[in-house]
Amino acid sequence: MSRTATALGQPAVLVSMLIGVIFVAAWEWLPGMLGVARFIIPPASAVAEEIVFMFARENLLYHTAVTSLSVAIGFVLGAALGAAIGYALAVSPTAEFALSPYILALQIAPKVAFAPLFVMWFGFNLMPKILVATLIVFFPVMVNVLGAVRQIDRDQINLGRAFNATRLELFWKIEVPASMPALFAGLRIAATLAVIGVIVGELVGGSVGLGYLLAFGQGQANTPMVFGVIIMLTLIGLVAYLAVVVAEARVLHYMPKRDFGAR
């Protein structure tokens, strides 16, 4: 099995790299050839130059750190809250029945629209953007956990009951581990959503974070800066996603191996 993977892997990596090279080359030269102005699509080199400039003059590292920190806090809070409430609702059908209409409403409500309100309520600090991220991360985690506990084979639970397991034992020994794959699937989605939540919060106002730099660049029609910020945000999202993948690989080590990024 691993032999097949390597045999397939080698040309796939080459093709992947080739696509990357073609993409960057097209980005660098195609807009110019088609007469697209630099302020609309700046070439790759201009963006790279801008990123270097941002490191030197615009405190890019600091803004990236602030955004990363907000993403991390928002992600952890949202994931913890989502998992906790997901499990709580899963083990208490009454609570779920009573709360589901409200949870559904909150789930449907576009979370990013809350950003200006949070800024108004809590001011220009980390709080509003962490809150948006928390809120946006909360749902996929909660929904996945709830769904996973629901879908556990009744017979599996009965097996535990037949062995005289207490409710708490069923929860910790069957329901929690059985819902881990779904929890991690939710966390993967949540990792990328956390970045969106934070950036929306930062776009509303304030003077720190990549969202600020994005607005700042846009406010000066500095398109290379906007591209630079998008690249940094993508990197943060990628790191967050990979962190989840690594954690997942460790926690779900008992699962049949599958290729990176599959799904």
Binding site: Q156, L159, A162, F163
Partner: peptide, 15 residues
């Protein structure tokens, strides 16, 4: 504790 059962499904916990 006097009874144990076994089904068509093995019900082994994958983790």
């Amino acid at each position: 504790s006097h009874v144990a059962f076994m089904l068509q499904k093995d019900l082994l916990l994958p983790w």
